[in-house]
Simulated assay, not measured.
Amino acid sequence: MITSLFSKSKPLNFIIVFFILVLAFALGNKHNVDETKLLEKVVLFLVCVVSVLIINFIVSKNNLTQNSNYEILFFSLFLLALPNTTTNGHILISNIFLLLGIRRLITMRSQIDVQKKIFDAAFWIAIACLFYFWAILFFVLILIALLLYSDNNIKHWLIPFVGAATVFLITVSVSVIWYDDFFTILNIDASVSYDFSNYNSVQYLITTTMLFSFGIWSSIFYLKSINQKKKAVRPPFKVVLFTAFISFFVIILAPKKDGSEFLFMLAPVAVIIANYIETIQEKWFKELFLGILMFVPFILLML
């Protein structure tokens, strides 16, 4: 029953996801709301909604799943399991720009306007870095994408640096106009922390175990399914996998480990697990697999 509901794209699925988002956002921000911050919280909630819509758009337009809505369901459930992912406005906004950059990398498959897409990807990722410094690691994704698409044009390898430089010059110019200083507006925090003590709670232990175990298990079959696809359609799926891999290092390096840093990992892992769900032939196992992912976040609410 659960699998049949989300196996096809339906308006009802978006309504269910919306209410899960409302619950996740309310839980994450219940101790940090007052009248002065009400407008800010409304904007951040809309950012969460837009993130879901962008993920669905990327997946549906590039056929990353079989026309299902599993990816947005999993993304919203992961937010519910880790409600702190909805609290950091800088990371929420950074993640949106990152998704826009990834979208441009994935659409390189068409080999139309390749130079523009590379520039756009670098441009969006550079903006993401302005809001959260360690999003800079995702620049590696652009170079990986060029390798995956077997791009030997030297000009294409230089374009990402042009895109990043463009954002830097615009930002510095704005800083000079507003603050009469070159770098004040950047406010970069490049610090690193290896203190994982905040994860020593039942909620984090259960959620991270679920996220990594289900993600790694699904990735094994995801890789197998990629190898079974035509060579021309493999790169977008590999971009998703490398995005999840890079986001793991973002979590490791995050200067403040309060759970919000997991946001970068949720979208790619949701797509990977959605692909695995679609390959499961045994209906009872598919229902069990999806049931665990659905009910664990709600069970955690009672802890």
Rank of each mutant, 00 (worst) to 15 (best):
V140A: 15
S150E: 13
S60L: 13
Q115I: 10
G291I: 09
D258M: 08
T85G: 08
L80S: 12
F182K: 14
S201P: 00
A232W: 00
I188P: 02
N95T: 12
K231H: 09
F131E: 03
F237D: 05
I125D: 01
P235G: 07
I188V: 15
L27V: 13
L64P: 02
S68W: 07
I251V: 14
I177M: 13
E40W: 02
I277E: 03
S247G: 04
L301Q: 12
L21Y: 06
I177H: 10
K224D: 10
L64S: 07
I20Y: 02
F242H: 06
V239R: 06
D195E: 09
A190K: 06
N200G: 08
F78T: 11
N62R: 09
V162K: 08
P83R: 13
M210R: 05
V239A: 06
P83Y: 10
I170E: 02
F57P: 00
I91S: 01
N84L: 12
A24H: 04
K117F: 00
A190W: 09
Y204D: 07
L46R: 06
F245K: 07
F248Y: 07
F131Y: 13
I273K: 04
L100T: 03
S191L: 11
I2C: 03
N13W: 01
E278C: 05
D180F: 10
L146P: 02
F119A: 03
V167R: 07
D113Q: 13
V202F: 15
Y204Q: 12
I273N: 07
F212V: 15
N13C: 08
V17L: 04
V114H: 01
F168G: 08
D120C: 04
M210S: 11
M210P: 01
Y276N: 15
I15E: 05
F25P: 04
V250L: 14
K155T: 14
Y222S: 11
L147F: 13
K286R: 14
L263N: 04
T279C: 01
V42P: 00
K286G: 03
I93M: 06
S94L: 01
I96F: 06
W217L: 15
I20T: 02
E261V: 01
K238G: 02
I96E: 05
I15F: 11
I226Y: 03
Q228L: 14
S175P: 03
T3P: 01
L80E: 11
N84A: 14
E287C: 05
P297Y: 09
K224V: 13
A135K: 04
E40G: 09
L141D: 01
I246R: 05
T208V: 13
A121K: 00
E35A: 15
F45G: 05
F289Q: 05
L27K: 13
W178T: 13
S247H: 02
P83T: 14
V114C: 01
L38W: 09
D180E: 13
V42I: 15
T65P: 00
D151I: 13
N187F: 07
K116E: 09
I125S: 02
K238H: 01
F285W: 08
G28N: 07
S76Y: 06
F237C: 07
L98T: 01
L288G: 03
F75S: 12
I159N: 07
K286C: 02
K256Y: 11
N227P: 00
L21F: 06
V192G: 00
A270P: 02
L27P: 02
N95W: 01
Y199K: 10
V192M: 12
